[in-house]
Simulated assay, not measured.
Amino acid sequence: MATAKKKAKLKSLSHGRPPTAKPVRTISRTKTRTLIRTHHTLEKQRAKALADGDDAKAALLLKRIDEQGGIEGYQRASLIGQNNERGGDSSKLLMDWLEPVVSVLKERVKDGRPIRMLEVGALSVTNACSKSRLFDVERIDLNSQAEGITQEDFMERPLPRDVDEQFDIISLSLVLNYVPDPLGRGKMLLRTLEFLRSRQTSQDLQNWFPSLFLVLPASCVTNSRYMDETKLESIMSSLGYAQTKKKLSNKLVYYLWRLDAGKVKQSTVFKKEELRAGKARNNFSIVLK
């Protein structure tokens, strides 16, 4: 039983992130959305069953996951769901937001001091941030299938030993929502503080870095029983983050949060509390203890 629980923990973050290889696109939009939604639901139910010690139920759920194509089927659907016709590369928006300081970033590259980026749940080595050549990018993914992306669990990654091993920006694009439980999401956000530099030494960049680029399905804040934008802002503020940029689309919500390490409120607690009633609501939430 202990072994089963350990395995569940190792796959609790971005288990099943899609590869960079492009599959044959034969899945319709409706089937793509259904497969992704079902896979997320089954994985969450399986994680709960394992946490409850119900190995029989966990095995049954794993069988259902395999019957719908397993991790490979989810990866194919996820990649199709994020191609250019259905949302595309989220880092394009980040590059648009950073346009005012591109010249400064270029100077940093020339000086051999590029801004360091950690991309968690990386899908590609050729996204907009990578192609800009403005960053020193380190890419990790729980199920990497591409050279240039290290297979690693962010929650198991060794903590930085000094400022040289920390980053100026972390990207969590459609990663946080895949963590199967609210407390795990809170732990992930809290852990970002360990990997970000406490301040930006360049005066021209102090309003931009250190920062967290966060992308979520829009429904996480617009249609959740337990989460809305006000609560998300309160959670992020308690961690020392201030919102600098935001974009809400029909499907996704994008944020850029700047970290002020001096404003972290370590004693603040956020519970799973109902904010909006309704059968059509989802259960996305974040818990901080």
Rank of each mutant, 00 (worst) to 15 (best):
L288S: 00
K251F: 13
L216Y: 08
R29L: 12
N207V: 11
M188K: 00
L248T: 02
T268L: 09
G88M: 09
L214T: 02
G70Q: 07
L190C: 10
R185H: 03
V102A: 09
Y178K: 07
E229V: 09
A47V: 04
H15S: 10
A280W: 07
T26L: 06
A280R: 05
S103D: 11
S144R: 00
D66Q: 14
R139H: 07
S90C: 08
R113Q: 13
F135E: 00
L190R: 15
V102C: 09
L196E: 05
N207K: 14
N207I: 11
A122R: 00
K9T: 09
N177T: 04
E99Q: 15
E152L: 06
I149M: 02
A47F: 10
M1P: 09
A277M: 06
V24P: 03
I169T: 05
I71A: 13
A4D: 10
V264E: 08
A47L: 08
S198N: 14
I71R: 15
A128H: 01
L174P: 00
I169E: 00
V179Q: 01
D96V: 05
F195G: 08
K271G: 07
K9V: 14
T201H: 13
H39R: 06
A51Y: 07
R139F: 03
I170Q: 04
K44S: 14
V137F: 04
S219E: 15
T150K: 12
A59Q: 13
L174G: 03
V101M: 05
I36Y: 02
L212R: 02
